[in-house]
Amino acid sequence: MSVEPVLEVVDLVVVYDGTTALHGVSLSVAPGEVLALLGPSGSGKSTLLHAVAGFLVPSGGTARLGGTPVAGNGRPVPPEKRDLAVVFQNYALWPHLSALDTVAYPARRRGVSREQSRREALELLDLLRIAHLADRRPAELSGGEQQRVGLARALARRPSLYLFDEPTAHLDAHVRDVFLQELVARRRGTGAAGIYATHDAEEALGLADRVALLRDGRLVQVGTPQQVYEEPVDLFAARLTGPASVIDAPDGAGRLLVRPGWARLGGPLEGRLRAVWFRGPHSDHLLDTAAGEVLVRQPGPPRHPVGACVGWTLVRSWPLAG
């Protein structure tokens, strides 16, 4: 049985101020899934989220939320009628409302009484361990506390889709757990999903079920975190998803991607140690080799001085297209 995707975007084109910010992006998000949108600044992450949220009207393509067309088929559906919530970049808290009233706001708009919506808001704040800050206004909250209020407001909306527009700070462990648990809880019901825009590869790979790589308004690759890390479609995707050494293939047929853990010190190949960084649990060694520069990650402290000639072994590699 095929499940209706929470979000389905087909050939989405967004043009503003004469420049095309999205060139026909297509993707879908399944219930319970977290999709990370990973791309450098200006790649169109925010634009895509804003088009999905209804803050922008796309000039081409369609968007469907839970099977219902919201853009591209006649009149666009306004944001308040879309079944989604947004955690904004700088949280977009209202300076004139307390944390409690901010979180109560979505329930109030659903027609819930003031008392009831405040009660629900307090529960959410408690879930995020900031119930004691309920009476504070945004100016009196720290960045992390603002983030929790912003997430609580999104949770209060009880949407099928959560959009995270590059939150200024990483979600801390507790906040992330609360959010993921909410998705799991909702999966049993109607099924909620999340899209998380970020330019931080580590965050994207660690949080998401699938990662979509964006460049200049185009999708470069969509896959599981492991896929995009280990089998990037090109050099751009490789660099975007983590530290990447690129060497010439021994048989001369193109270039190979070598991740830091894919080579180890000691072995038949020769290299000169150009630099070394102690990272705590492991050390990074930058080798000059005949095939090119290779970054080797090895457990423990550095074992050789800079300038030393060392042997190394290529354990694994991935042929790069192009």
């Binding site: 803050f55 308040e80 919530a85 947004v86 904004f88 970049q89 977009a92 659903r110 407001r153």
Partner: peptide, 11 residues
């Protein structure tokens, strides 16, 4: 983004 936040909260 205050107004966007209000709209997407259902206002």
């Amino acid at each position: 983004d205050g107004e966007l936040a209000a709209r997407v909260s259902g206002a």
